[in-house]
Design a protein around this nucleic acid. Structure first.
Lengths: 101, 101
DNA sequence: CAGACATTTGGTTATTATATCAAATGACAA
DNA sequence: TTGTCATTTGATATAATAACCAAATGTCTG
């Protein structure tokens, strides 16, 4: 494996890792319905601001979301809508699992 | 969030986590080209058998791959080809990142 | 400017993943 | 059956993540 191939692999992994957490995945799904301020995400998740803020930073660093500060609030939006297509695929895996259990 | 919603979220997360490691993602990509025995994956990754075997177990538990023992060897195959579609999406994120850096 | 609100940052601790080594299992060949 | 190769399992040490608290920053309103 070349260094370049490794780098590409690492970059893809970063995106997957960013989504691979219940709180972050939930936020990505919320953002699919339009932008949200941090406060709305905090309310929905019932986690404190610092935790949510750090999760959002992970998503932002992975290139999955964008932020926009307007007045007192920061609004986040989904930068890569195609991410959501994957969810249907995953749901098929999940359903397969449920049948098994 | 109901318990059921939490369970669905956890199940999706499991699939994402399974793919969110360079070695496992590489293996999934390899399997997209057809089944492979563990030995081929070990050769490609340059990790030892025990490590590769554990990574494969993670993918299997997530429902992403299937295994088939034939004679001395175990062959793995990709159970959910749609997973690979996502890669194109991720690649678009990755390229966006590269431009930034 | 002062006070209130929204958000982020730093530090700490608990939890979870990872790689490696050694040993166990299982299948085939002689 | 004995040996050998392919693979999995168990144990352990290390490293990465996550949640929480406290404190800092920045923006609006009065």
């Amino acid at each position: 494996m070349t260094d370049r191939e490794k780098a590409v692999l690492a970059a893809k992994t970063k995106v997957l890792k960013a989504l691979a957490h219940p709180a972050r995945l939930w936020m990505a799904e919320q953002l699919a319905g339009g932008e949200r301020c941090v406060c709305e995400l905090v309310d929905g998740l019932e986690l404190d601001y610092s935790t949510v803020s750090k999760h959002l930073l992970v998503l932002k660093n992975a290139g999955v979301v964008a932020d926009d500060k307007r007045g007192k609030q920061v609004f986040y939006s989904l930068k890569v809508p195609c991410v959501l297509n994957f969810m249907h695929c995953i749901e098929s895996v999940v359903q397969g699992e449920e049948k098994g259990v």
